[in-house]
Write a protein that binds this DNA or RNA. Structure first.
Lengths: 222, 222
DNA sequence: AACTTAACTGACCGATGGTCAATTATATAG
DNA sequence: CTATATAATTGACCATCGGTCAGTTAAGTT
């Protein structure tokens, strides 16, 4: 068995630092799942991580830098799960539904993805931004390969589909990020509007359209 | 000529209150155009509007309530402009390009639309939310009518297209909301990634796909 | 045991959105 | 014209936020 890494009071070695970072990020994900992005406070996170606030800023430059790391982690985790569901041949519909279901099952990925460009990326260092973009590129490629097999498309078509559906996924779930309209205090016309954007049917419908369009655009690569 | 509405010190009549609200909202739009959403401060807005901070809260319940009103105003304004560009017969491509160009020309609409569900709607009163959704319904219908003529589609198809392209627009312009990467300090692979999501080609390409798909889905209404 | 290094702490800072008792402009009544 | 009532306006004030940094001290080195 491997040597267990422990931290007495101070994280001195690189391994110990990685462990401490990991502890903070795990606490952050749990806390984030409870309160969401806006109510997430660094002081609270410090308490829940068992360290002082200043310590968190030794491991993450800013609040957004922390969220960027959390995003990378959840993206990578989801992509492995999604790929695990892809068999050697599936329909566009099943593909789209699986993509949607697995992404929504992860409570962290979409809330961060939706805030990525216009909030998170605006307060991180450029090297973090580059690292994050490279994680994205890498995961797109990773997913494109089994996508190519499952949907019987070229590699280029598969990449196009993964990128496009990734963007579409964000919009399809926007309505789920709206306020919880628990009781039915909304008038019928407004309820119908919200229902018409109900994210899964909306996403699947348009995903199929796009997949089939790309499939027929056989000779479109310059 | 109509009687000019003026406010000496206090807005007493309904007309005067409407005028004061208008003055604040106009100042807000200018200020918003200068600093964007996150840096927008209510104290600064008060100074620029020539009233005290407390006064603003007499006219808008919260910061988000103010932004919701600004969103409604910019949505309505844009829809009239967009409709003005629709002639009795245009191609899918021109339609998509016009929609994109007019929406981007408005500096207020997209930055607010992108934050609508997951930020703005979470801190407004339910009656404001309902009013806002109804403005949306109304503008979709208003746009759908000339869309139906221009693209030679049924009314139902036109509504479907307007709603879907609206969502697509948000996703496509997400990349424009990222940090300004002025100088070319980004490595090539990352630059290529960002370029591949360049918003106008991305939007137009997928908009055409969706329009043409909907066009061929002739008998899909349940 | 003495010294050095650097991980860690938390009081502190400026700024934020939002509140409300006090103020006072203005319409109305006498 | 004056007195009174009403309500629009104000800005000091509050809790809380993300972020900082001088000081503390755990732990490796000599």
């Amino acid at each position: 068995m491997s040597t267990a890494v422990v931290i007495n009071h101070r994280a001195r070695s690189a391994e110990q630092k990685a462990l401490r970072r990991h502890v903070v990020i795990e606490a952050a994900e749990t806390y984030f799942g409870e309160v969401g992005y806006e109510a997430f406070s660094m002081a609270q996170l410090a308490k829940r991580s068992g360290v002082a606030k200043g310590t968190i800023y030794l491991y993450f430059k800013t609040r957004e830098d922390l969220f960027l790391s959390l995003y990378e982690q959840s993206l990578t985790r989801w992509s492995h799960i999604f790929i695990g569901y892809l068999s050697k041949s599936i329909s566009s519909e099943v593909y789209a539904e699986t993509l949607y279901d697995t992404a929504l099952a992860d409570g962290t990925l979409l809330p961060l993805l939706i805030r990525l460009e216009h909030i998170i990326e605006h307060n991180v260092e450029i090297h973090s931004l580059i690292r994050s973009k490279r994680v994205f590129i890498s995961e797109v490629k990773r997913i494109a390969e089994p996508t190519s097999t499952s949907l019987k498309l070229s590699q280029a078509q598969a990449i196009e589909i993964v990128k496009t559906l990734g963007v579409l996924l964000i919009t399809a779930t926007r309505v789920d990020q709206g306020p919880a309209l628990d009781n039915e205090e909304l008038p019928n016309d407004v309820q119908e509007l919200i229902a018409s954007f109900s994210s899964k049917p909306f996403f699947v419908k348009n995903a199929i359209r796009i997949i089939e369009c790309i499939r027929t655009e056989a000779t479109s690569n310059a």
